[in-house]
Amino acid sequence: KKRTSIEVSVKGALESHFLKCPKPSAQEITSLADSLQLEKEVVRVWFCNRRQKEKR
């Protein structure tokens, strides 16, 4: 599967949402994915990776 490159504006939106809620529910992920026109899986993986980055 190809890597999904996420645009800067979209990254900003994800980042601000992450600061409010680092662990969104499935429903939040779905609505966020719909509003940003991304697949749910892409958003879910982005949050997983972002939480891991926070640990480092």
Results as ranks from 00 to 15, higher is better:
C48I: 12
T4H: 05
L38A: 03
S25G: 08
E54G: 04
W46K: 02
R51T: 04
K23D: 14
C21T: 09
E41Q: 07
L36S: 01
C21K: 04
A26E: 11
S25R: 04
S35L: 11
K1F: 09
L38M: 07
E41T: 06
L19Y: 07
W46H: 01
P22A: 11
L38Q: 04
N49P: 02
L19S: 12
R44M: 07
Q37Y: 05
N49V: 10
A13I: 08
G12T: 15
E7M: 13
K23S: 13
Q52V: 09
E7A: 11
E7P: 15
K2W: 07
V8I: 14
Q37S: 12
R50N: 01
G12V: 15
C21Q: 12
E41P: 03
W46S: 03
S31Q: 14
T4Y: 07
Q52N: 12
P22H: 08
T4A: 10
E15V: 02
R3V: 14
V45Y: 09
V8A: 15
I6D: 11
V42I: 08
V10K: 13
V10I: 12
P24K: 01
Q27R: 12
Q37E: 08
P24A: 02
R44I: 06
R51S: 06
R56D: 15
V10T: 14
R44H: 09
D34T: 14
E54I: 03
S31R: 14
I6E: 10
E28S: 04
L32G: 02
A26I: 11
V45P: 02
E15F: 01
V42M: 06
Q37R: 09
N49Y: 05
A33M: 03
F18W: 06
E15G: 01
C21S: 09
K55D: 13
E41C: 04
G12S: 15
S9N: 08
Q27N: 13
G12K: 11
R51G: 08
C21R: 05
I29A: 00
Q27C: 10
L32A: 00
K23F: 08
V43C: 04
R44D: 13
A13S: 08
R3G: 14
I6P: 07
K11I: 14
T30N: 15
L19C: 10
E7S: 15
L14W: 01
T30P: 01
V42L: 12
S16A: 15
N49M: 08
L14E: 02
L38V: 09
L38R: 02
Q52P: 00
C21V: 05
L14G: 01
K23V: 11
K11R: 09
F18Y: 10
S5F: 11
S5L: 12
T30C: 09
W46L: 01
K40V: 13
I6G: 09
E54Y: 06
R50P: 00
S5Q: 14
R50H: 03
R51M: 08
E15R: 00
R50V: 00
A26F: 06
D34N: 15
E15K: 02
C21M: 05
K40L: 09
V10E: 11
H17M: 11
N49I: 07
S9C: 09
E28M: 04
R51W: 10
K2F: 08
C48R: 07
V45L: 12
S5Y: 08
K23L: 08
R51V: 07
K11V: 13
S9K: 15
S16P: 04
Q37H: 06
Q27G: 09
R3L: 13
F18V: 00
W46M: 01
C48D: 11
L38Y: 02
R3H: 12
E39H: 13
Q37K: 11
E15P: 00
A13W: 05
V42K: 10
H17R: 04
K55F: 08
L32M: 10
P24Q: 02
E7R: 12
V45M: 10
P22Y: 03
K53H: 08
V43N: 01
K20C: 05
T30R: 09
G12C: 13
A13N: 07
L19N: 10
V43P: 01
H17E: 09
R51H: 10
F47H: 03
Q37I: 03
K2L: 07
L36T: 03
K11W: 11
L19R: 13
S5H: 14
H17D: 02
V43Q: 01
C48A: 10
S16E: 12
F47I: 03
V42C: 12
E28N: 04
V8R: 14
K20V: 06
V45Q: 14
R50S: 03
K20N: 07
A26S: 09
H17T: 10
V8H: 15
W46R: 02
C21F: 05
K20R: 07
V42A: 10
S16H: 07
E7W: 07
K40S: 12
S35Q: 13
D34V: 11
E54V: 04
R50K: 08
V45E: 11
Q27V: 11
S5D: 08
E54T: 04
Q37C: 14
I29R: 01
H17P: 00
V45S: 15
A33T: 02
E28V: 08
E7H: 13
K40W: 08
P22V: 03
Q52C: 09
E7C: 13
A26K: 08
V42E: 13
F47K: 00
K1H: 04
K20L: 06
L19F: 04
C21N: 08
V42D: 14
V8T: 13
L36H: 04
L19V: 11
S16V: 07
Q27A: 09
C48G: 09
V45C: 06
L36V: 04
A33R: 01
R50C: 01
K55Q: 07
F18H: 01
K40Y: 10
N49L: 09
P22T: 06
K23M: 10
E15L: 03
V10Q: 09
K2C: 05
T4L: 08
G12H: 12
N49Q: 12
K11F: 09
Q37V: 05
Q27P: 07
K40E: 14
L38N: 00
L19I: 10
Q27Y: 06
A33D: 03
